[in-house]
Amino acid sequence: MSFQSVGLKRLFREQGPLLILIGLMFLIFFAQEAFGPLWYMNLMSVPADVMESWNHLLEGRSSVADWKTFGTMLSYAFLHGDIEHITSNMTFFWIFGALLVELLGWRWMLVLFVGTSIAAAATHVGMHRDDLAPMLGASGALMGFEGAYLGLAVRWKLPSPHIWPMSRPVTPGQLALLAVVGVCLDYLNLMSGDGERIAYGAHVGGFTMGLLLASTVIPKPKSAWAAR
């Protein structure tokens, strides 16, 4: 058995669920390209539709259609607009997702993915209640991963991460700083009103939820020790 095959087996054993999640997103993207918008338009999250369904729920007259609309607050995260969109998202999704799997295990990674995706959608909906423009993309969950890593790095002393495509290990502080810079840029763009095509509010919402979860309910990683 070659060294390469051993390495691949180890990779799939340790990061299999994350790789499956990323692979699923690419498969869905290829299906989007093959079948066109009519195939996936009902899976995108439309703020005005979500708010209408929310009002129906408050009024006690929610229907199956309303719950399907609520489901788009997660399904949108599996969709992407073009090859550049999914490639850039999945690159950083892999970096921070793989580190979270190493630190917390794949189950917590999935909890963070679901929780931050929904939080990102809810933030976007809350800021654009009457907007009919649909939202798609895993950026909210990606920013949630970054927020979670920042929370872990502040709360615990973490080992220096080394994950492809980083050429060498870096300090947790440096990687956490990258997350901080990213969310600060999103916040500045959000405050400037430059958000016609990019849901900066969703980015900030996902990041905040990831940070909150890592700072409160997520347990101490086995490879970490208390910060001094």
Rank of each mutant, 00 (worst) to 15 (best):
T69H: 06
P161G: 01
L43F: 14
A153V: 01
L79A: 00
L104H: 09
L27R: 01
A120M: 07
M143I: 01
G36Q: 02
P134N: 05
W164A: 15
S2A: 01
I20F: 12
A138M: 04
S2I: 00
E33S: 06
L104N: 10
W164N: 05
F26W: 08
L11T: 05
I20S: 07
W225N: 09
P221S: 13
W39L: 14
S192T: 14
V50G: 09
L58Y: 06
R168Y: 14
F92H: 09
F70G: 03
A120F: 05
D49R: 14
R10H: 04
L150G: 03
I86T: 01
P161T: 06
P172E: 05
A148Y: 06
Y40A: 02
H124P: 08
R107Q: 15
L190Y: 10
L104V: 02
L19D: 12
G126L: 07
V114R: 05
A119Y: 08
V154G: 06
T91S: 13
F26M: 01
L136T: 09
N189M: 14
I86P: 01
I198K: 10
K9L: 10
E52L: 11
E59F: 10
M166D: 14
L150T: 04
S63V: 02
N55V: 10
I118G: 01
S53N: 12
V183M: 07
V217W: 14
P172D: 03
P134V: 02
G81R: 13
E33D: 03
D49S: 11
I86H: 00
L18I: 09
I95Y: 12
G140S: 04
G195E: 12
S5P: 08
N89H: 14
L132K: 08
G210Q: 01
A31I: 08
L158P: 02
G173P: 05
E146G: 10
G195H: 11
L158I: 03
G97E: 00
P172N: 09
S45L: 13
I118C: 00
F96Q: 02
G195I: 07
H85P: 07
E146R: 02
F26Q: 00
M73Q: 10
P172T: 06
R228T: 05
V101W: 06
L11Q: 05
G140M: 04
V183I: 12
S5Y: 11
A122H: 11
M25L: 00
W54Y: 09
K68S: 13
L18T: 09
M73K: 06
K220D: 02
Q4G: 02
M109E: 09
T91A: 15
V217Q: 15
S215P: 15
L99D: 11
S5W: 13
F92T: 13
F3G: 00
R10K: 06
T216A: 04
A77D: 03
G140L: 07
R10G: 02
D194S: 08
V181K: 05
V114C: 07
L178N: 12
W225V: 12
L21V: 10
L185Y: 07
T171F: 14
L27F: 02
W164F: 15
E102L: 10
S45H: 09
S223I: 05
D82I: 14
I20E: 10
L110H: 07
Q32H: 03
A227G: 03
A34E: 09
L136F: 09
G205V: 06
P169W: 05
T208Q: 03
R107I: 13
M166Y: 15
E84C: 08
L99F: 06
I218T: 12
L103F: 03
F207H: 00
